[in-house]
């Protein structure tokens, strides 16, 4: 993600919050931060075991961790599923995880999540920066249709669920009973 690390900026704000930000790598970039009232190591450990992520990430159906790659299955449009293989490109224990999907993935995506001690003993600031390639082709166009606005919405909701689970041990829901929960496919 070259221009994510651009240091020729006029201020200290995150690059993804720049006005009229458009990247020259053709990818769609977005980011989001959340403060979680737990130590960085705990949050990192939860995230680093990718098989935990379907619990908090609504779009992710399953993650299989193979040797040095992981296989991701996500909800696609109209009840379909999309899959990709992802590789960890950087890993700093308790502090940072970065990943990149295969170049030929249906939806090429890459990202980086950092776990930084929050000021004033407020726990951990988790910042996720992600980029994806709005896909080409017929399937791609359908995927893009939902993906183009969805990933940002999805990320902020997923981070809130992560926070809820890490802080309270459960994910808040307004369903009245377990049957309703099952109906919603959770």
């Amino acid at each position: 993600m070259p221009d994510m690390l651009d240091d020729e900026r006029a201020d200290d704000a995150p690059p993804t919050t720049a006005k009229g930000s458009s990247s020259d790598d053709g990818l769609t970039h977005f980011s989001r931060a959340i403060t979680i009232n737990r130590p960085p190591q705990d949050v990192y450990n939860f995230w680093r075991d990718f098989t935990n992520l379907p619990h908090v990430m609504d779009n992710i159906i399953a993650v299989d961790v193979l040797d040095d790659v992981s296989r991701w299955t996500a909800k696609g449009p109209g009840g379909t599923q999309i899959e990709w293989t992802s590789r960890v490109t950087e890993d700093v224990d308790g502090a940072l995880i970065a990943w990149k999907s295969d170049e030929d993935a249906d939806v090429f995506n890459e990202g980086r999540v950092t776990f930084v001690p929050a000021q004033g003993q407020r726990g951990t600031v988790v910042t996720a920066v992600m980029a994806y390639d709005p896909p080409a082709g017929f399937v791609g166009r359908i995927v893009a249709k939902i993906m183009q606005r969805e990933p940002e919405v999805q990320l902020r909701r997923d981070l809130r669920r992560l926070k809820q689970l890490m802080e309270t041990g459960e994910i808040a829901t307004n369903v009245r009973n377990p049957a309703q929960l099952a109906e919603e496919g959770k």
Partner: peptide, 20 residues
């Protein structure tokens, strides 16, 4: 009861009581 705001007894500002 676990979040930053609950810790400050600002319960109606709880981060986690409202579904994501």
């Amino acid at each position: 009861g676990n979040c930053f705001h609950c810790g400050k007894k600002q319960f109606s500002a709880c981060d986690n009581g409202n579904p994501a």
